[in-house]
Design a protein around this nucleic acid. Structure first.
Length: 336
DNA sequence: TCTGGGGTCCTAGGACCC
DNA sequence: TCTGGGGTCCTAGGACCC
């Protein structure tokens, strides 16, 4: 099993079209203005040396690295670059599953996966001028985590035999699927490391974290992952549009107008895909950062713009709190 | 530190039905 | 006149990922 991950993908694509940026700290995020609300999508390694990383507010990034070049997110360009990379990977004879713009799993199972990995790195570099790292594992989880140890521009292999020596003493959130919140809860139960989580009682975790997630976390800690590489084309289950406003909205009539606007954009997406929406969900983030959602089911699934607009307004009417708003979102769930 | 935009899946509680 | 137990569906929220 191979996991391929492009190195500093967005920043690397930007450097390709502006070679004078090579070697400089580059930060891609928001609309490229670090005085506005927004977060870092990708920072180049030069910027990461200043503590700038994905998800960091742009304003904080500008403070940590004032000399960085800040660039807006340019989706079309990254999509095009991503397509080139994925087309190159598809030349490998293996089932492939794409995860976002810059990652893919390849279900290769041969005698010399390192050689295949090096071949992939060479081919991607030749055809796109981009660097990638390849992780090798006995399943998707191992391959995915291996990539992190191979960066940048390397190859790394994890196996059942090396799993605990590499990951045993690491914090639980080193695992793919455990984030900040779950790590904190585990710490509260006296579980700090991957090895400790592996030794935990699945039934005890089921009580605390739910019947599915509890036992799943223990399997994760053992480096076990039965999930298959899915080669069939990705089919979205929902489509959404959302906007964080630079200035908070404190007039509810304005909130209504903005929801209608977002609903129209979602309706256009839905119509373009020709897949009827069954339910419309409106998301409101109040100042400072409380998020609420309410939905409205469509009687009969539809792609009609007016029906989607009306459903969004009906969902909005379910919000009883009319305090200042900083973000609005509208999501259409497709009929299943 | 002051928090984007686009997604997925799981959980818990209530409604409803038999 | 106050009420069981089980199943399923819907909804809102939480957590995570890229």
């Amino acid at each position: 099993m191979l996991h391929v991950d492009l190195d500093q993908f967005l920043a690397a694509v930007e450097v390709l079209r502006r070679p004078e940026l090579r070697g400089r700290p580059v930060v891609v995020g928001g609309d490229g203005d670090p005085t506005k609300r927004g977060v870092v999508s990708t920072a180049s390694y030069e910027a990461r040396a200043f503590g700038v990383h994905s998800g960091l507010p742009l304003r904080t990034a500008a403070r940590r690295c004032p000399d960085a070049v800040f660039l807006p997110v340019d989706r079309q360009v990254y999509e095009a670059a991503s397509s080139e990379v994925m087309a190159t990977l598809r030349e490998i004879d293996a089932v492939m599953e794409v995860l976002g713009w810059d990652e893919a799993f390849l279900a290769v199972d041969n005698d010399d996966p390192e050689a295949t990995a090096r071949q992939i790195r060479r081919r991607v570099r030749e055809s796109t001028d981009l660097d990638c790292t390849v992780g090798i594992g006995q399943n998707k989880l191992q391959a995915k985590l291996a990539t992190g140890f191979g960066k940048p521009a390397g190859v790394f292999r994890l196996t059942d035999q090396t799993w605990f020596e590499v990951l045993g003493d690491r914090p639980t959130d080193a695992l793919w699927g455990i984030g900040h919140k779950t790590a904190k809860r585990l710490t509260g139960m006296g579980i700090d490391t991957v090895a400790q989580l592996a030794a935990a009682d699945p039934r005890a975790l089921a009580m605390q974290l739910g019947p599915t997630i509890g036992p799943w976390l223990v399997r994760l800690a053992h480096g076990q992952d039965p999930s298959p590489v899915v080669g069939t084309p990705y089919v979205a289950r929902s489509r959404s549009r959302e906007t964080t406003y630079q200035h908070d909205l404190d007039d509810w009539d304005e909130v209504r107008r903005e929801v209608v606007h977002l609903a129209q954009r979602v309706a256009n997406d839905v119509a373009a895909e020709q897949r009827p929406a069954a339910r419309i969900v409106v998301k409101v983030r109040y100042v400072p950062f409380t998020t609420r959602t309410h939905g409205h089911a469509l009687g009969t699934p539809t792609t009609e713009v007016t029906a989607i607009e009306q459903a969004a307004l009906a969902a909005l009417d379910r919000f009883t709190e009319r305090r200042p708003v900083r973000l609005l979102g509208v999501r259409a769930e497709f009929a299943r």
